[in-house]
Amino acid sequence: MTWGMESPSNFGDYFLDGDYVGFDDALISYYLNKMPDKDKAEMGVSDGFSHPTFYGKFIRELGWLKPQECPEEFAITHTRSKSFGSLIELGSQLPAADEDLKALIERLEPGIHQFWPIKITMPKGETYPKQFYGMRIGKFF
């Protein structure tokens, strides 16, 4: 099945303004302390850590993400809305799908795309009531 999506051009119901909680520190720690040299060479980061290289795995067909490459929480800094679309974009162009869209995509294209739960935290610290899943698109044309 072929489908397409357009990235939103400004913050709102489909593009959340915020940042990942603890993710950058966890990625750097993984790179410095646990990432095998072979994996660094394959990613082209043998000479040093590169945010764009790791974040590039969100939006390009560069293989399955390891658990430590999947952000667990996204904190919204401000929002005009209390509800979001079924498909949203988080920092570094990471798409996230709600439960219904995730189920639909998995039913139509089983085993192609990677999903993991991601907590969305609202500006006042409360957890967004609807579960979202980070989504690594597995096939690009």
Rank of each mutant, 00 (worst) to 15 (best):
M1F: 02
M1K: 12
M1E: 01
M1Y: 00
G4T: 08
M5K: 13
G12L: 12
G12V: 06
D13W: 02
L16W: 09
D17R: 15
D17N: 15
G18Q: 09
D19G: 06
V21Q: 13
F23D: 05
D25H: 10
A26I: 00
A26W: 02
K38L: 02
K40V: 08
E42D: 13
M43S: 08
M43Y: 11
G48L: 10
T53I: 15
I59H: 12
I59G: 11
E61W: 03
G63Q: 07
W64L: 07
P67V: 08
P67R: 07
Q68I: 15
E69R: 12
P71G: 05
E72N: 04
E73I: 01
I76L: 09
T77V: 04
H78F: 02
T79G: 01
K82S: 13
S83M: 07
F84L: 15
L87H: 04
I88S: 10
G91S: 14
S92R: 13
Q93P: 00
L94V: 00
P95E: 00
P95A: 14
A96W: 08
A96V: 06
E99I: 04
L104Q: 09
E106G: 06
H113V: 04
P117D: 08
I120Y: 06
M122W: 05
K124Y: 03
E126Q: 13
P129R: 14
I137D: 00
I137V: 11
I137S: 08
G138V: 06
